[in-house]
């Protein structure tokens, strides 16, 4: 019984560290996004709250939480409440297998990559349920649109990740990182990296594929009916997913965190900056163009890469 208590306390403390670190990371990722975009567009960006605007995310978060929570009368109240919680929880759970250092990881499981694929595929439910439970046409259509987008690009991303698994010969994230000590996977698998980058942009609903929240031409999306904390949870989950995707790309292709922690963190931040760079540069896609790109361009190309990597590995063996 004492042993059980010890395990619970240890797990609780560990997860608390992960969650607090993640929330701070998300807060400053929003600031980073606004600052980088401002620099690209020759503006100053947020610079009023705190020293050079460092407290801006805190002010934003406070404003968001203090707003009035509105629940539509016709909404399915239980599912309406569950959907943002589900999105946020899943985006946290995914972080449990990401290694912060060589041995400092919350749960070092053997099939870490498959775990990430499996849990991130549940993330669609938050969006579908939010759209359905709001009982509004716009939210419902937006939810279906986003779900179709995420499901279809998950296929291409999964194939690229499978080819990485085949190339590295393991499904453990830490072993994949250790395999890249001599040469990063971006050098032999450059086309795979580009495909994975595009798919990651779509998976996290980032521009140019941000159709779920196209506020100008389509009425936002699955989160139109949400306000206050519900909206904040969606927002946090989305940014946590963005940071996760950039860290995952740096783990799969750029060597991740093996020797130097600061260098490893810089790789992740670099990927995050490239996400923002894409947002500030490219215009939004049309929905049929998005589907065309996903099923007719990325998927055959990803299959080609997968088969190519398998045959390469088999020939070398």
């Amino acid at each position: 019984m004492e042993n059980m208590l010890y395990i619970i306390i240890e797990g609780g403390l560990k997860s608390l560290i992960v969650i607090i670190g993640l929330l701070i990371g998300v807060a400053f990722a929003t600031l980073l996004e606004r600052k980088v975009m401002a620099a690209m567009q020759k503006r100053r960006g947020p610079n009023v709250v705190g020293f050079v605007g460092l407290l801006q995310p805190l002010a934003d978060g406070l404003k968001l939480v203090l707003k009035e929570t509105i629940i539509p009368i016709v909404a399915d109240k239980l599912i309406y409440a569950i959907a943002p919680i589900l999105t946020f929880t899943i985006s946290i759970v995914l972080w449990s297998v990401i290694a912060v250092g060589v041995q400092s990881v919350f749960a070092s499981i053997n099939s870490g990559v498959i775990f990430i694929l499996a849990i991130s595929s549940i993330g669609v439910y938050g969006i579908i349920l939010a759209g359905w439970a709001s009982n509004s046409k716009y939210a419902f259509l937006g939810g279906l649109r986003s779900a179709a987008q995420m499901v279809s690009y998950e296929v291409a991303l999964g194939l690229i990740i499978l080819s990485i698994i085949t190339y590295a010969g393991t499904v453990n994230l830490q072993e994949i990182m250790e395999n890249q000590e001599k040469v990063w996977f971006i050098i032999p698998l450059l086309p795979g990296f580009l495909l994975a980058f595009i798919s990651a942009l779509t998976e996290t609903n980032r521009p140019p594929f941000d159709l779920p929240e196209a506020e100008a031409e389509l009425v936002s999306g699955y989160n139109v009916e949400y306000s206050s904390t519900g909206f904040a949870l969606f927002f946090l989950g989305e940014y946590a997913n963005i940071i996760l995707m950039s860290v995952l790309l740096s783990v799969f292709f750029l060597g991740g965190i093996v020797s130097n922690k600061i260098l490893g963190a810089m790789k992740g931040v670099g990927m995050l900056c490239s996400f923002i760079w894409v947002r500030a540069t490219l215009p939004r896609y049309r929905y049929d163009q998005l589907m065309y790109l996903g099923w007719k361009s990325l998927l055959p190309f990803a299959l080609l890469i997968y088969i190519g990597v398998i045959s390469m590995v088999l020939i070398i063996k």
Partner: peptide, 26 residues
């Protein structure tokens, strides 16, 4: 059996149940 569990979630929850939900909702 971590691998089997992950694959089970990936296939059944991530793919099949999403399709069911899609159809039933529409």
């Amino acid at each position: 059996m971590e691998f089997l569990a992950c694959i089970y979630i990936l296939v059944n929850v991530g793919a099949i149940a999403v399709l069911f939900l899609f159809i039933v909702m529409m």
